[in-house]
């Protein structure tokens, strides 16, 4: 029973980890929590659904197209909206992401309506693997494996590639990055694109266990945000760990204490973290960029 709960916790934690990761990448570069991230992901999942159902593309091609689409949306938002603002304050940035959120929410409702659809992976949903006393659904295995793979690829990307290193440099000190010849604007656009892709991967993994409607990502986004805060918003490593921890705690709480209040746990955790360790569990102290 216990190990079963842990596995399920890790599975939902994988989604929170991806959402948190997408959020932290943006937060470190632009110093703004991207409230539109959920809608950006939802839109891309709808695009994938549209390709599968209306265009009759095979699943994997539809997903690839949706990821490309997500990347384009991220890049386009940075390029057409954020970059046009002259020295925006944090509040102005937040308002811009909220504006984008409502804009995309409206577009989804207008294009696909509010009725619920289903978007599932091309596997038998109830197929399971028996590991001793633990039963793991294939969906859970795929979710966990995909998120681990994403984390690994991102780790290699940020530490080994020229582009990833440049992204970290921009996040740390954009003036220094600039005078070393790094094209900061281009890096910002690509960062938004990358974040949108990660968010969309989370969305595609979440869609099979939830009805596909315009509110698809509301819950995972809030949980992912909580995971990010738990891990300290400035640390990708912390965000991933925060995601897994939140998933596990939530599942244990739901089973042993109260199923009704299961989804409130995340927010109780945010409050506790902000109370006792405002910089998050895994973050080094927050340095203000000047």
């Amino acid at each position: 029973m216990f190990s079963q709960l842990i596995i399920n916790g890790i599975s939902s934690g994988s989604l929170y980890a991806l959402v948190a990761l997408a959020m932290v990448i943006i937060y470190k570069a632009s110093e703004v929590p991207n409230f539109a991230q959920g809608e950006m992901a939802t839109l891309s999942v709808f695009v994938a659904w549209h390709f599968v159902n209306a265009q009759f593309l095979p699943f994997y091609q539809a997903v690839a197209a949706a990821l490309l689409f997500a990347f384009a949306v991220g890049v386009l938002f940075e390029f057409t909206v954020l970059r046009r603002a002259e020295k925006p304050s944090i509040l102005e940035l937040i308002v811009m992401t909220l504006g984008l959120q409502m804009f995309i929410y409206g577009i989804i409702g207008w294009k696909w309506g509010a009725e619920q659809k289903t978007f599932s992976l091309p596997i038998a949903e109830d197929s399971v693997v028996q590991l001793g006393p633990v039963v793991i659904g294939w969906l859970n295995i795929i979710t966990i494996a995909t998120s681990l793979l994403c984390v690994l690829v991102l780790y290699l990307f940020f530490t080994r590639t020229k582009l990833g290193t440049a992204m970290r440099a921009v996040q740390m000190n954009s003036t220094a990055a600039r005078i070393n010849g790094i094209r900061v604007h281009r890096i910002m656009s690509l960062t938004w694109g990358l974040s949108a892709v990660i968010g969309t991967i989370a969305g595609i993994l979440f869609a099979p266990v939830s009805p596909l409607d315009p509110q698809l990502m509301w819950d995972p986004l809030l949980k992912g945000f909580a995971a990010g805060v738990l891990g300290g918003m400035t640390s990708p490593f912390g965000a991933v760990l925060g995601g897994y921890i939140l998933g596990i705690i939530e599942n244990l709480f739901g089973a042993y204490i109260s199923l009704e209040f299961k989804s409130v746990v995340a927010f109780a955790l945010i409050v506790l973290v902000l109370w006792f360790k405002p910089s998050g569990l895994f973050s080094r102290h927050y340095e203000r960029k000047v």
Binding site: F157, T161, K162, L163, G164, T165, A166, R168, A169, M172, N173, T175, A176, A177, I179, N180, G181, I182, R284, E287
Partner: peptide, 24 residues
Amino acid sequence: ELFFRMTTMENLMLGRHIHMRTNI
């Protein structure tokens, strides 16, 4: 204006950014 959380080596390697060509 340094990358304070990176090592000396990493800071200097970033100085070579414009000379690097390898793709992702």
